[in-house]
């Protein structure tokens, strides 16, 4: 009887736990050294190994906005097991912009919706090519895995760049850049320099699981910092009587 009770307890406990592969993270979005928003990511892996990643960005309105209300952007992405490209990706802003990308019949269907119109594009699908969104920052988690750590060196990664899903050439170079408030020795993270389309340079730091740790995107000049690191930096700021 007692054994049965223990077994039931263990099963209940396990059922209450998420998959050990589930992942969640919060990132702080910084522009011109000011926090302008957050991105909260929740990734779940089902029993078949398919991953569903739901993310929500809460962004301050721009400096010229009349309405200072925060904007909410939600994305949902389903990546089949072993794939680089999502079977479906939905971007939905609480203002007037949304788009949806899915793979059907060997084609990428990109539906771009605004208040005024809905536009559909079809793009040939190459399953060997990963996707990346430069505004849904957690997508770099999946994209950077395309970089061949065994090969190392400079690597060109042909990529579907969202929201257009157009194919761009992205060059990845392993690097070792240290920021003033960021000690890579202590954190044991990997660093890359990334050049998108010969135009946008990204400094990327990922942890040992290839999860985004910190990213500085030159061009739009946006920095994305994992919350735990951000809090550490913010603590230093506050000690100086400053706020981010």
């Amino acid at each position: 009887m007692i054994r049965k009770f223990i077994l039931i307890f263990i099963l209940l406990f396990l059922a209450s736990c998420g998959s050990p592969q589930d992942y969640s993270q919060t990132y702080i979005i910084v522009m011109n050294r000011k926090k302008i928003g957050t991105e909260v990511v929740n990734e779940k892996t089902d029993r078949n190994g398919n991953r569903t990643c739901i993310a929500e960005q809460a962004l301050d309105s721009g400096p010229n906005a009349k309405d200072k209300k925060q904007r909410i952007i939600k994305t949902k992405m389903v990546i089949p097991k072993g794939q680089l490209f999502p079977s479906s990706y939905a971007y939905d802003s609480d203002t007037d912009s949304s788009y949806e990308i899915k793979v059907e019949d060997g084609k990428i269907i990109n539906t771009n919706k605004t208040q005024e119109e809905s536009e559909v594009k079809q793009i040939p699908f190459d399953p060997g090519m990963p996707m990346l969104s430069l505004t849904s920052y957690h997508t770099i988690d999946y994209w950077i895995r395309k970089y061949d750590e065994k090969k190392r060196g400079d690597q060109n990664i042909q990529t579907y760049l969202f929201p257009s899903a157009s194919i761009v050439k992205i060059m990845v170079t392993p690097s070792n850049t240290i920021l003033p408030d960021h000690d890579n020795k202590e954190l044991k993270i990997k660093n890359y320099e990334i050049e998108v389309d010969n135009e946008i340079n990204i400094l990327l730091w990922v942890d040992q699981d290839n999860r985004l740790y910190r990213m500085f995107i030159q061009g739009p000049n946006i920095e994305v910092i994992r919350e735990d690191l951000f809090l550490k930096i913010e603590k230093d700021y506050k000690q100086q009587g400053e706020n981010l």
Binding site: L59, N64, A65, T95, S164, D197, E199, G219
Partner: peptide, 25 residues
Amino acid sequence: STSGTSPKPSTNFYGYEKTYPFETF
């Protein structure tokens, strides 16, 4: 844009225009 062999006008903002609207930024 300077990504090509010579500079040329481009409306490609890599999706930032959706997240950070021009009018407010």
